[in-house]
Every structure is written in C-alpha cells, then in structure tokens.
Design a binder for these strands. Structure first.
Length: 330
DNA sequence: TTCCAGGTCCGGC
DNA sequence: GCCGGACCTGGA
C-alpha cells in the first residue's frame, strides 16, 4: 500500500539512526520493524511511502504509520528555522529528510532506560531480546516477502510485539538480567510495575501534558533522569522542544558553540567530565532560547551529524535473539 | 588492561 | 544543591 508523500524523507537515518531500535535494513530500500502490534515493512518510492503489514489491514494502518513517521511535520518551517544557524544549516544540507519519530511511548521508555551507559548495538539487542522472549508472537501473521527481496527476507520478519508492562513484570528482573540488561533490569521492571498497577504515569496522557509536567512525571521513574526523559518526550510524547543532552550533543555544543553552557572536556581530576543535571538543564534552556519549539529537531540533526558522520551506515545488529535461561552459565 | 558507550543513583560535602 | 565514583556488559 502507498502513503502518498513527496517531501524529503530519509528512512534509513530516521528509522535506524538511534531513536528507534527495532528497524532492520533489508536492502533495496526496505526496512522491517514491529509497530502497533504489526510487522511492517516499508520503503521510500517516488510517490510516497510504500508499506506492507500484518496482521492488521493495511488500510487501517496507513494513518497510524503516517503519524509514526510524522509525515505531517512542516519540515520547511523547521529547516528555515534551523538554517539560520550556520552549523545546523550544514547538517540540514547533509541529512535533509531526517525526521523525529512519534513512537509508542512504552517501548520508547524502556528502550531509553536501557540506553544508560550503553551503546546502540547493545540497546538494540536488549530491546529485540525482550520482544523475542516475552512479546506476543506475530508468527501466525507472517508477512510475505517483498517482490525484490532477498531469499531470507521472510525469516527476518518473524518478529514479536514489544512486551506489555504486565508481561515484563511477570518475566521478572532476573529474566532481564539473563538477557544482559545488567543494572538496567531492575529499572525496567520498576517502570513496568508502576505502569501496570497504575502507580506510574499514564504515558499517553503525557502527550497532552505540558513539558514540565511530563518531565516531572517521567523522572519519578527509577532509571529515568533528564536525558532519558527528554528522549522519551521527544521521540514519543509530542514534545518537540525536548532536548536530550548526551555525549554527542555535548561534543557538538563544545565544537560549534563555544559560548554555550557545555561542561569542559575534563574535570578537575583530569577525567572525562560528564554534564551535571544542572548543566543539562542549562544546555536545554540555551537550546530552547536559540531554537524555540524546534530544539528537538536541532538536537536530532546535531546528534545525527556528530554520531554518524565519518562512520559507515547506521548499524543494524544480528537478528539472532538471545534466549533467556539457556546456553548461559550465569 | 583500560576505556568507552544516546546515564543514573547514591553518599559525602 | 553540587560533585565524584560505581555500575552490567562487551567491543575496541
């Protein structure tokens, strides 16, 4: 099925650039992922976004997918605003079509709880492993291979939905440790328990909340502080002014904006300095004053430019999921 | 061996 | 409030 759409859209950079973790590059422009309880395969064509999905009807999924991809964002306005800045003007030229996604909040929250002191290939593995072991099976609704795909493309789309909070609570902390989540395992379980029993935030309701209220709710969760909360707000909760400050954003701000409130490269002990929560708030404030509601897009282009320039294409890791409780001697 | 990765928490000032 | 160290894991 086709979603008509003619503006620039960089599917690879957007789906596989580090804001979502379940999209796989299948080659020939196709990407396969699991969203809204469906296996979805999509690619960019001249007339728009072509996709196929299962088990739900494609006509039913077209609008949710358009929302997920944020096809309705006015990128010309965003580009005009960002291009007043010489560094971002360059980043926009090089990565035109890169977008922020509107992900499902629960999966996004867990993904970024897993991002703490971690790297993208391992976050990807953690998220996929949780789905493979504890998510609802979509096997009965296997997606047919696309016409010009590889022979094994059918197998790569035998995926499971991301597990619900209740499913992860039932699995338990040790199960997630067995999947190598490490110290993040209890944080994921605590968030799952809070949301499953109603003590935690209603994530979808936070889409309607204002920025400060949503932030305050999110940081109540164990394992969620300024950076993770801003990622969840930007990538899933309709907070375009969110500005997650990570090592790459710090690098960009040091390199590009000497007067911006970034921490020095080294602290007083000569060790690598990481920004304090206060400095992150100051950096976000600086970004908001400079870029307004487009701070989130500024952030995404800064991150993408610093993180992926000079590397090969955005990585996608092995699809072989780790199986809990087997072949591992603790 | 040491450092690092889309950080957060905790204890000591 | 504001640091500085610890933290699972695994690749470089």
């Amino acid at each position: 099925m086709l979603i008509p759409f003619t503006a620039p859209y960089d599917l690879r950079g957007t789906l596989c650039g580090g804001q979502a973790f379940r999209w796989r590059d299948e080659g020939d422009g196709w990407f396969c992922g699991v969203i809204f309880g469906n296996t979805v395969r999509m690619r960019r064509v001249d007339e728009g976004i072509e996709f196929m999905s299962a088990p739900d009807d494609e006509a039913f999924l077209a609008q949710p997918i358009a929302d997920y991809l944020r096809l309705d964002d006015d990128m010309e306005e965003v580009y005009a605003a960002l291009s007043e800045d010489e560094h971002l003007a360059d980043a926009v030229r090089q990565h035109r079509g890169l977008r922020v996604l509107r992900q499902e909040p629960w999966e996004c929250l867990v993904s970024f709880i897993c991002s703490a002191n971690n790297n993208i290939p391992r976050i990807t593995a953690n998220v996929e492993d949780m789905a493979a072991n504890y998510g609802e099976s979509l096997l009965r609704h296997r997606l047919p291979p696309h016409d010009d795909g590889e022979a094994n493309s059918e197998a790569t789309c035998e995926r499971r939905a991301f597990p619900t909070p209740r499913m992860l609570v039932h699995a338990g902390e040790q199960a997630l440790r067995d999947l190598k989540l490490g110290f993040r395992a209890p944080n994921v379980i605590a968030a799952a328990a809070g949301i499953a029993d109603g003590d935690g935030p209603d994530l979808y309701a936070l889409r309607e909340a204002d920025f400060d209220d949503a932030l305050a709710e999110l940081v109540k969760l164990r394992g969620v502080a300024d950076k993770v909360a801003n990622c969840v707000m930007l990538f899933s909760l309709d907070k375009p002014q969110a500005f997650p400050v990570d090592v790459w954003i710090v690098k960009a701000m040091r390199d590009w904006y000497p007067d911006a409130p970034a921490p020095p490269p080294l602290n007083s002990n000569g060790k690598k300095a990481s920004p304090t929560e206060k400095q992150k708030r100051e950096m976000r404030q600086w970004a908001h004053e400079r870029f307004g509601t487009h701070a989130g897009y500024a952030n995404q282009y800064m991150f993408h430019h610093k993180r992926w320039m000079g590397t090969a294409q955005a990585p996608h890791t092995s699809l072989l999921p780790r199986v809990a409780g087997t072949a591992d001697d603790r």
